[in-house]
């Protein structure tokens, strides 16, 4: 028997090194462009402005008019837009899946339209709609509905893709028309996931609606933006603390419900 010896140590290939080098170069260049400064991690703590964040003025924060009302508005925006977005997403997602799409044209058109909708960042939608229909919660709900639609069709159409095709085939074989076939053959099998995703989208919307106000689209972000412009960072911090406690609680509840659904 010859000795087996140590296995040779794996070495990175030249191509891998090339890619790593290229990415490192890009990182350095991009870092220079954005003004990367390692010193910030230290100097940021010694900035005198931090004192403006403290102490939190709890009387002001806990005043119903200042924080609670806008926060309620935030949740109303999130609830309405979840419903609208997910309702529209149901037929669109069926159109986007090869399994259930009525024809190829619908498939391609709906897919590419949703691709574009998703490529526009959520707050861009908010700013666009604020400009179009005016400042306030209405523009915010609309923007968030579009955002929910984009997320929901992405998630849910993949579920439809993976649905069991056999009930569909059975319904089709019995000679049904397209819509009743989809309704009877696919919808029941994907409905629990639909509800779970809707709850997930609701969580996303709660988070997103917190920042909508920064561009004038209503909700608690409006308070953050206003106080920020008055340099009342202590109030900003107070608002944020309240927001995160509430958001955290809602998420825990939603996650618990979702776990039971799937």
């Amino acid at each position: 028997m010859t000795e087996s010896g140590r296995p040779s140590r794996p070495r990175l290939r030249a191509r891998t090194w090339l890619i790593v080098a290229a990415l490192a170069t890009y990182t350095v260049l991009a870092g220079q462009t954005v003004g990367f400064d390692l010193g910030t991690f230290w100097t940021v703590w010694s900035n005198p402005l931090w004192e403006k964040f403290w102490p939190i003025p709890w009387d002001w924060v806990l005043d119903r008019h200042n924080v609670i009302d806008p926060l309620v508005e935030t949740f109303q925006i999130a609830i309405v837009s979840t419903l609208v977005g997910c309702a529209v997403a149901l037929p669109v997602a069926f159109a986007m899946s090869p399994l259930t799409s009525p024809n190829r044209v619908t498939l391609v058109v709906s897919r590419s339209m949703m691709g574009v909708v998703r490529a526009v960042p959520d707050l861009f939608w908010a700013k666009l709609l604020v400009t179009a229909v005016g400042i306030g919660a209405f523009a915010g709900s609309w923007a968030l509905s579009v955002f929910s639609l984009g997320v929901m069709v992405k998630l849910f159409s993949e579920t439809v893709d993976g649905a069991d095709p056999r009930p569909l085939e059975a319904a089709r074989a019995s000679g049904g028309r397209h819509l009743p076939v989809v309704r009877a053959g696919v919808l029941p099998t994907v409905l629990p996931e639909y509800v779970a995703y809707a709850l997930y989208v609701f969580e996303l919307n709660i988070r997103a609606s917190v920042v909508l106000g920064l561009v004038g689209a209503g909700g608690i972000g409006r308070v953050v933006e206003a106080q920020r412009q008055y340099f009342r960072f202590d109030r900003v911090l107070g608002v944020l603390v309240i927001v995160f406690v509430v958001v955290f609680v809602i998420e825990q509840v939603s996650v618990a419900i979702r776990k039971r659904l799937i």
């Binding site: 707050l123 988070r207 917190v210 920042v211 920064l214 953050v224 920020r228 960072f233 900003v236 944020l240």
Partner: peptide, 9 residues
């Protein structure tokens, strides 16, 4: 904490 809020801070 969303990025936007971090940026505000």
């Amino acid at each position: 904490v969303p990025e936007l809020i971090l940026a505000v801070i």
